[in-house]
Amino acid sequence: MRLEPKPAPSLAVTLLFPLAAIATTLMLTSILVLAAGASPLSVFYLVAKGAAGSQFALLETLTRATPLIFTGLAIAVAFRAKLWNIGAEAQLYIGGVVTVVLGTGALPLPSVILIPVIIVVAMAAGALLLLGPAVLKTRFGVDEVVTTLLLNFIVLLFVSMLLEGMLKDPMGLGWPQSQKVVAEAQLPRLIQGKRLHYGFVIALASAVVVWVVMKKTVLGYEMRAVGFNPEGARFVGIPVNRALLKTALLSGGLAALAGFSEVSGLKGNLTLDLSPGYGYTGIVVAMLAMLNPLGVIASAIFVAGIFVGADAMSRAAKVPSYIADVMVATSLLTMVVAILLTRFWIRWR
């Protein structure tokens, strides 16, 4: 068996492949639904209805998509330069920590100043957190996959320590949670009385900015060149290591925005369950989008829809909501195969 390159497919064909990957995922997960004694069609209908069947469902899906857009962008940027940042979860939590540290009354500033200050500091903290593994990679050749993964555990323990110590809410009845951020540090809701908040708007804007950076700037060009062929990039005079470090700063900063947006826009305070694995799910979001920043918006909404829909479905049908995680993981694998098929013929001889 061998792979032979084929000419670049048209846009229509390219868009067809994610759809084929999703269809394959649905077929494969049908087996699990059948094993649970339910009918796949009705279960998938319930998932779709739970994700987008009403105004409430749709808004809930967009709310859930918000952190996934940030982590998806963080991964898309990093993976484009083949910087394997699996630590978005840790960077997200650091963003949350900064939001709580600065947002619970330490800075008596009006909203228009306070929120940008928090955003900048949160992004800087997330950026620095990824800069460590990136420097270890460029300086010492330490694989960043393992270091970023291990940092996830360290940072979560660090957050747990803060929530039982310095940042503990004295009125929290002993729960490991922080105080609520002050009103000036809260992102307003997009629609009065609904959960969707301005974090979603910031996420959309970030996607556009990242798209411009990737397509129109020297940095974007360097990142793509480094990811495509580091040796070649070095040969044509691109400072490969510096490009990787810049990528790390951008990626870590974007992931930290997810933590900021969840605390400031949705939860109000920091707890240990701020993220049910948004950092890891961001990898799937980025891959489904084929690392395209604008595509991340669509794939984040799709993945969020699966989670929100599955929650609603599992209340109605007796299928565990973990089916959503299985679907998301399966779609990651079917998607990478689909991308391969857009580029190569598989020849059996």
């Binding site: 699990l32 890891y280 799937v284 973990y322 089916i323 993981a329």
Partner: peptide, 9 residues
């Protein structure tokens, strides 16, 4: 991700 989520399911 697949092995973990399948196990939990």
């Amino acid at each position: 991700l697949l092995a973990t989520s399948l196990t939990y399911f």
